Computed example of a mutant assay.
Amino acid sequence: MSILDRFRIDGQVAIVTGAGRGIGAGSAVALAEAGADVVISARTHEQLAETAAAIEGVGRKAHIVVADLNDEAAIRGLADAAMETFGRIDVVVNNVGGTMPRGYLDTSVGFLERAFHFNVSTAHALTTAAVPHMLSTGGGSVVNIASVIGRVAGRGYLAYGTAKAALIHYTELAAHDLAPRVRINAIGVGSIATSALDIVMADDGMRTALEQATPLRRVGEVDDIAAAVVYLASPAGSYLTGKVLEVDGGIDAPNLTMPIPDL
Rank of each mutant, 00 (worst) to 15 (best):
S2D: 15
D5Y: 10
R6M: 13
R8K: 13
Q12N: 10
A14F: 02
I15E: 02
V16H: 00
V16I: 08
G20S: 10
G24S: 09
G24N: 03
A25G: 12
G26P: 08
G26T: 05
S27C: 10
A28N: 05
A30V: 08
A30Q: 03
L31V: 04
A32S: 04
E33L: 09
A36T: 01
A42C: 08
R43M: 03
E50W: 10
A53F: 12
E56T: 11
G59V: 01
G59R: 07
K61G: 10
A62D: 06
I64G: 00
V66N: 07
D68Q: 12
L69Q: 11
L69T: 07
E72N: 11
A74P: 11
I75P: 05
R76I: 11
A81K: 02
A82C: 06
M83Q: 12
T85C: 10
I89W: 03
D90H: 03
M100I: 14
M100R: 14
P101I: 07
P101S: 09
R102P: 09
D106I: 07
D106W: 04
T107F: 04
V109L: 15
E113H: 08
R114A: 09
R114G: 13
A115W: 00
F116V: 08
F116S: 01
N119G: 02
S121G: 12
T122W: 03
H124S: 13
A125N: 02
L126A: 02
A129F: 00
A130Q: 01
A130P: 00
V131G: 02
V131P: 00
P132G: 06
P132D: 05
M134N: 04
L135Y: 05
S136R: 14
G138N: 06
G140T: 00
I145M: 07
I145P: 01
G150Q: 03
R151P: 10
R155Q: 15
Y157S: 15
A159F: 04
K164P: 00
E172D: 09
A179C: 08
V182H: 06
V182K: 00
I184M: 04
N185H: 05
G188T: 02
G188Q: 00
S191Y: 13
A193G: 03
T194L: 10
T194Y: 06
M201H: 03
A202L: 09
G205F: 10
R207V: 10
T208V: 12
T208I: 13
A209S: 12
A209P: 11
E211A: 07
Q212N: 15
G220L: 02
G220N: 04
D224T: 06
A226C: 09
S234V: 08
P235W: 08
S238W: 15
S238C: 14
L240C: 12
G242Y: 04
E246Y: 09
D248A: 14
D248W: 09
G249V: 01
G249R: 02
G249D: 10
G250W: 06
I251R: 11
I251E: 07
D252V: 14
P254D: 05
L256S: 06
P259S: 08
P261W: 06
D262N: 14
L263G: 14
